[in-house]
Write a protein that binds this DNA or RNA. Sequence first.
DNA 1: ATCAACACGTGAGCC
DNA 2: TGGCTCACGTGTTGA
Lengths: 220, 220
Amino acid sequence: MSCEVPEQWLVAGDVLDKRDDDDEPLDDGADNSPSPPEPHAERKSRRGRKPGPRTAGPASSHVEAERQRRDRLNRRFCELRAAVPTVSRMDRASLLSDATAYIAELRGRVKELETEAKTRRMTGAEASQSPQHFSLEVRMVGRDAASLRLTTPAARHAQAPACLMAAIRALDLLVQNACVCRVGGPTVQDVVVDVPAAGGLLGEDYLRAALLHRLLQESV
Amino acid sequence: MSCEVPEQWLVAGDVLDKRDDDDEPLDDGADNSPSPPEPHAERKSRRGRKPGPRTAGPASSHVEAERQRRDRLNRRFCELRAAVPTVSRMDRASLLSDATAYIAELRGRVKELETEAKTRRMTGAEASQSPQHFSLEVRMVGRDAASLRLTTPAARHAQAPACLMAAIRALDLLVQNACVCRVGGPTVQDVVVDVPAAGGLLGEDYLRAALLHRLLQESV
DNA sequence: ATCAACACGTGAGCC
DNA sequence: TGGCTCACGTGTTGA
C-alpha cells in the first residue's frame, strides 16, 4: 500500500514543497493553482502506472490537483491502516472492511464495559445504601439512657453493626452493653445496644435522626 | 458518495448477475473473464465520467475487473461510513480521517473503562482481603473463657467488628461484653470481646485458628 | 501466461 | 469561471 515515501522516479524540477497538512480539508484556498508542474514523488510498492509522460504544459493544473487528491487519500489510508490493529491483507478494500469490523468490535467492547460499570455501580450503590433498609428503634430508658435496636433484613450487610458503633461513637455516646446476633440464619441481623447518658439534651427523635444521619453518611 | 443504487443508464443487455459477495475477496476464480460485456449499472450522484463508449469487445475483461474493484471499494466505503457516527463531510478523505479519529476515540474510551474496572476490582479485592491485615489476640481468662482483641490498621474496614461477631457466633460462642472503639482517628479500629465458655475442649490456639479461618471465610 | 491491485490522466458534475 | 471531487479506462506492476 505504499506507506513509505522513498522518493522514487523523481523528475527534474521536483520541489516537494507540498505543505500537505491534513487536519480537516478546510484549507486549500488558492495555493495549488500556481504554475509549478510539481510532479508527484513517493511510490514504493511499484505498482500502478509510471508517472506518465509528464506533460509540463500549463494545462496540468487539473492533473496536479488530482495527484494531490490521490496523495491525500493515500495518506489517509496509511493513517487508517496504522489505527487498525487487525489488518488481514494489504488491500484497500480489506482495510476498509477491517476498519469497519474493528469499529464494531470496539463499540461492542465499550457497550459491554459500560454496562458492566453501570451494574457494578448499581450493586455498589445498593450495598452502600443498604442502611436505608435498616430498621432503627430508639427506646428511651429513663431520662438519660436509651436502648437502640438495629435490624437489617439481609445478613450480607455485615458492616451494619460496625456502622452503628461508629455512629454511636461519632455522637460521643458510650456503649454499656451490645449484642449482635443473627436470627433466622442469614436473613435477619439484630443489634441491641444500651446507651447510658444518651438523654439529656438529646431527645429520642433527635437521637434517632442523628443516628440515621450518621448511618447514611457512614455507608458512603 | 453514491451509496444508493438506483440503476441508471443501463445498457441493453444488462444482466446484473454480479454475485457481488463481499466477505474476503478470496473468491473470483475465473468468472469475470467470460465474454459478457456486462456494463456496470448503479450510479447516483451523477459525478464522474459517463460509462464511456462501452467497447463490448472481448478486450474488456480488464475494465470489467476494474469496475468490480471500484464497486467493491465503494461498498466498503459505504459500510465504513455507516459505521462511523461522526461524518464531518461526504468526502472519501474526510471519511477516512474521521474513521481514524473515531477509532482512536473508541480506543481511549475502552482503555479508560478498563482501567476504571480494574481499579474498581482492585479496591473491591483489597477491601475484601483486608481481614488478612487484622491482628487477632486471644487471651484465655481462666480455663473456659477468653478475651479477644481484634485490631485493624485501617478504619475504612468498618465491617471488621461484624465479621468477628459473625465468626464468634459461627463457633457457637456467647458474647458477654463487647467494645468497639476507634483510636487515633481513622487509623486504628479496636474490638475487645469477652467470651465465656470459650475454653473447654477448645484450646487457645484452636480458638485463634478457628476464628481466623472464619474471619477469612467471612470476608470473601 | 492470467489475475489482482494500484496509479495515472482525463472527462464530467457540482458549487 | 475555477476548484474539488468522483468515475472511468488504461498502463504497469507483482504474484
